[in-house]
Amino acid sequence: MRRLTIVGGGFAGLTAAITAAEAGVRVTLHEAHRTPGGRARTSEGPHHTNEGPHALYAGGPHWTWLKQRGLLGPLAPLPASEVLRLRFHRGGSVLRTPPPAMIRQALRSADRAPVDTDFRTWATGLAGERGARAAAAYSGVALFHHDPGSLSARFVQERLHRAAAVPPEAHYIRGGWGRLVERMVARAWELGARIETSARVDSLDDLPRDQGPVIVATALPAAARLLGDPSLTWESGRTVLFDLAVRTRKGDPFVLSDLDAPGWIERFTAQDPTLAPAGQQLIQAQLPIGPGASRADGVAHAERLLDLGFPGWRERTVWRRESLSQGRTGAVDLPGTTWRDRPAIDRGDGVYLVGDQVAAPGVLSEVSFTSAVEAVSLALRARRGDDRKGLDLKHA
């Protein structure tokens, strides 16, 4: 395979570009925005935020891949004193420790969790109704869904187990994920990949005829439009993203997790003070909402949690931002489905689909990474197969 075209310069697209370029392929990547990164972009200005809270799970395959290539860069370590500031909301009270039944449920491996049973039913039989409800709410930090209990038990338990791992799997890129994107872009350039920004592709027919195989690395709704295939759909979440900068106050928690309903507030400057100006703390939250709820409902949820855990936050606020993320929170698997049932990576005719809602395993960004590596591997194998067929015909 001499050439490969990638549409979309987010985490999946850049992973595919580096993987293919390392194999000696000439890569051209088209990114619609003026800078690559997708949802991994970090905003400019005094408050460095991503599109929702971002963390990198050390237990995933992309951790090793990034580390081997020197792309991880400096991490933002969480001081031991901040670990002790993890708080939980339940029944109007702020707790220092979660319910024991929830802890026992989180420690269970996902291997024995059933695929065809919803998490609420399965976990209730093991942890009781209250323990199952708290566990489902806590798992929201890793799946951004308003009702985790209604999803496949295997799907939810995997995310719950990894989100509650000790020592924590979640790590933070110092300076925000934008720094990781910058290193990935630089690596792709070093390998000879061509990255064209402000280069929107509305149809694959617009690409040059000699572009080689095509990897579509956009959000699933955009991919459906680009490929003219309305069947490219999968269940995702709706979540309100809430960013807040407040004047520093001693005693603010590191994290406040709602165990009554999925919702998570985190003080990101606890591990990385560079994300906000001196004397300020950057808080990011994600509050999943149901189909009939509005952005205002999610914001109200965030404000209730802030009232409980961050005294005087309104008077201390120096900056805030709210947004609604819909269909951009990764795949969620309903009972009876697994990652294998999601839209296939190989779309036929030399077209491949990657991202966080396709048929690849993993948690959060791991799905994007795994699908990108798999797409390049499939394209290489397909090209070798075509070359072998041509060789056989030549000698027939």
Rank of each mutant, 00 (worst) to 15 (best):
R2D: 12
V7S: 06
F11K: 02
A12L: 07
T15R: 02
A17Q: 06
T19N: 03
A21S: 15
R26Q: 15
E31W: 09
A32F: 05
P36Y: 07
G38Q: 03
A40K: 03
P46K: 05
P46L: 08
A58L: 06
H62D: 11
W65M: 11
K67H: 05
K67T: 15
R69A: 09
L72F: 05
V83Y: 11
R85M: 07
G91P: 02
S93V: 14
A101P: 08
A101R: 14
I103F: 00
D116K: 04
T117M: 01
R120A: 13
W122R: 04
W122N: 15
L126A: 12
R130I: 10
A132P: 05
S139W: 00
S139C: 11
F144M: 03
H146I: 00
S150I: 00
A163W: 00
A164S: 14
A164G: 03
V166K: 07
P168H: 07
P168A: 10
Y172H: 11
G175L: 01
L180Q: 01
I195N: 14
V201I: 06
S203K: 14
L207Q: 10
I215K: 00
V216I: 13
L220P: 02
L226R: 02
G228M: 08
S231E: 13
W234H: 08
S236C: 14
D243Q: 04
D243R: 00
V246N: 02
V246E: 07
R249G: 05
D252C: 12
V255C: 12
R267L: 07
A270Q: 00
A270F: 04
A270E: 00
P273T: 13
L275N: 03
A278H: 15
Q281T: 10
A285D: 03
Q286D: 11
A296W: 00
A296E: 11
V299I: 12
A300Q: 11
A300C: 09
L308W: 04
G309S: 05
T329D: 02
D333C: 07
T337L: 09
W339F: 06
R347D: 04
V351F: 06
G355E: 03
G355C: 12
G355Y: 11
Q357G: 04
A359V: 10
V363D: 02
L364C: 09
L364H: 05
E366Q: 14
A379F: 02
A382S: 11
R383Y: 07
R384F: 03
D386S: 15
R388Q: 14
G390N: 12
A396K: 15
